[in-house]
Nucleic acid binder design. Sequence first.
DNA 1: ATTCTAACGCAACAGTCGTCGCTTTAGGGA
DNA 2: TCCCTAAAGCGACGACTGTTGCGTTAGAAT
Lengths: 201, 201
Amino acid sequence: MPTTTSASGSRPGGRSARVRAQVLEATGAQLVEHGYDGLTVDAVAERAGVHRTTVYRRWRDIGGLLADLLDAAGDDGWEPADTGTLEGDLTALNEEILAGVAADPPLTTALIAASFRSAQAARALRAFWEDRYARCAVVAVRAEERGELPPGTRSRELLVAATAPVYHELVLLGTPPDPHLPATAARTAALAARAGAFTGP
Amino acid sequence: MPTTTSASGSRPGGRSARVRAQVLEATGAQLVEHGYDGLTVDAVAERAGVHRTTVYRRWRDIGGLLADLLDAAGDDGWEPADTGTLEGDLTALNEEILAGVAADPPLTTALIAASFRSAQAARALRAFWEDRYARCAVVAVRAEERGELPPGTRSRELLVAATAPVYHELVLLGTPPDPHLPATAARTAALAARAGAFTGP
DNA sequence: ATTCTAACGCAACAGTCGTCGCTTTAGGGA
DNA sequence: TCCCTAAAGCGACGACTGTTGCGTTAGAAT
């Protein structure tokens, strides 16, 4: 997570960039240590050694902070695992999701919660997810090349079918993490995909 | 939505019940008219013609109000539609979900948002959903009886697989409502179920 | 080196949220 | 009918959030 990203304003060098780096780092640290409820603008500002008004002016609210954090995080070089089978790839993906959602501190949940309070955070989180799904398209491509899938399979639908149950159980239904939920959801989606559920008009 | 439910306290008659009815009705009306952001304890109290502290003492926060509202709503006689086919039943269910989430005012979204702020609201919402899933079990039973499904299909898994993509797309990913999302998600889940994805160990 | 200005620091402010101690009232029981 | 008490009313309070006007500073331009 590089913190040297240049600010987009007209004075990128020196202080602005430094303040941004300090504040974003403080945001992440505060979120990790005290969860979403402990994530107030005041706490972040104090932790970053910066005045409250500076944060309010540049980021508007906590949602803005998280959005900025997410934009930076989205630029990492993440790629889906390549296990050799469609079901294996989807399972690995779901296991990452499960680990992320069930993690302590609940970073993902905090971001989702924030997205309900801040349109800015919501946009950033959705962009992050869409980017992730786009990167995962290769999973379907590989499966097609191996002959595991009918040609023309719509990767996004397949990926949503595979991952949605994990999010749904953990985030919305609040069921305790089931260690083989990732595999069963992946298997179900792979089965449907092989049967052609995501091809055709 | 009957508002004559008796309060569970030790003084059920008269004032307590009247206040509860007034406050719950005001909560619903305020939510419908001004959305979740306009749903403050103060606004509800004023609307109900009741003092702020009364609301804070009996319901603690907005989450408590919504939880109480949900408990009342869960007692309706809702039943899943019976269309004659598994896929039809699941599609109808998904269409109800889509309508609920995409509705204006966004009642469902407001409840979900509240569940991230209030553990009480979260519990109530989850109980509501589990109750709905339990009532939907009959969909799988009917399908089994028609020979559409292998015996021993786990209804909850099937229902989650069918409905999760709808919630995921609309609530988390924020994609605009796709009118045939309900049908495609239902078809996918039904396909997997027929192939035995939800049977066995 | 000097100047100029975008960005930050600062203090005071209004608005909101949730709590507390006390008083008043309604309604159930004798 | 009278009393007793659970519940509601009331005002004040502290904590937090977000804004504004103004002074200060760092660093970019020349």
